[in-house]
Design a protein around this nucleic acid. Structure first.
Lengths: 136, 136
DNA sequence: CTGTATCCGGTCCGATACTG
DNA sequence: CAGTATCGGACCGGATACAG
């Protein structure tokens, strides 16, 4: 089984300065993932996102939304009313991104138990190899 | 169209302390992505990975490899010979992870042009809205 | 309600030197 | 060849205060 089927020459994975690095970091950023996931369901207001994501500060949410908006993944629509009303939604490109990170997030969720088991085994093995004097 | 078809209640996207967050950051980390991509092709030695990934320091490569190994994604095999020989490969779980991040990386590569166009449009719009005095 | 500006502590990461 | 130890700067991100 090869993931790299005949789908072209593939990304320039060896280029650390590749522009796709920035995009990847935006969509997989701590709050970026959660924002995309929420917007995948439906349009949300700023405060709805804030409540929907526990623990995010206004600064980071605004910053995350700006970045995703600038990348053309999120659409921002503001009504000139008092109090202000701003709604965020996904662009078509953003829906693609959200779908990808969503799949990755789902894989991660599915694998949590297996990963934690691997960590426990790794840590125990390290302990056996490095007994703290008197381990005999 | 909904990405969230009937596939269960979905990940706890609203839990920022979710253990899957750490896993996600490991596999999408700067060097993690590149390591997984290279190992997706075949087994590599430490120095091969170092050369294959331009710009990575020994420290970061070793750190990345150990993290992925501890998570059960990468298998490390060392021969007790002089000079030392260590080979890294993907575990079955690691192959799943690599496939996912590979897909995401490919989407990112495909979207670079569109994203950059969006950025240019965004920046120009911002300039038009914030003329630096005398813009008329 | 929807943001922006500032301060500041923690963390990451690169450079360097050293070890088995 | 395959790492580890340490240091120091850069940057991320949280808290707070303030603005439209």
């Amino acid at each position: 089984m090869s993931v790299r089927a005949d789908e072209g020459p593939a990304p320039d994975v060896n280029r650390e300065l590749c522009p796709s690095r920035a995009i990847l970091e935006h969509v997989t950023s701590r709050w970026g993932v959660l924002v995309l996931a929420l917007l995948l369901e439906r349009t949300h207001r700023f405060s709805e996102l804030r409540r929907g994501i526990g623990g995010v500060t206004e600064k980071m949410l605004a910053q995350t939304l700006r970045t995703l908006e600038r990348d053309g993944l999120v659409h921002r629509e503001a009504w000139p009313v008092i109090p202000p009303r701003v709604e965020y939604s996904l662009t078509p490109l953003g829906r693609q991104a959200a779908a990808q990170v969503w799949e990755l997030a789902r894989w991660t969720e599915r694998s949590v138990a297996e990963v934690e088991a691997a960590r426990a085994a790794y840590d125990e093995e390290k302990l056996r190899q490095a007994p703290p004097a008197g381990g005999a």
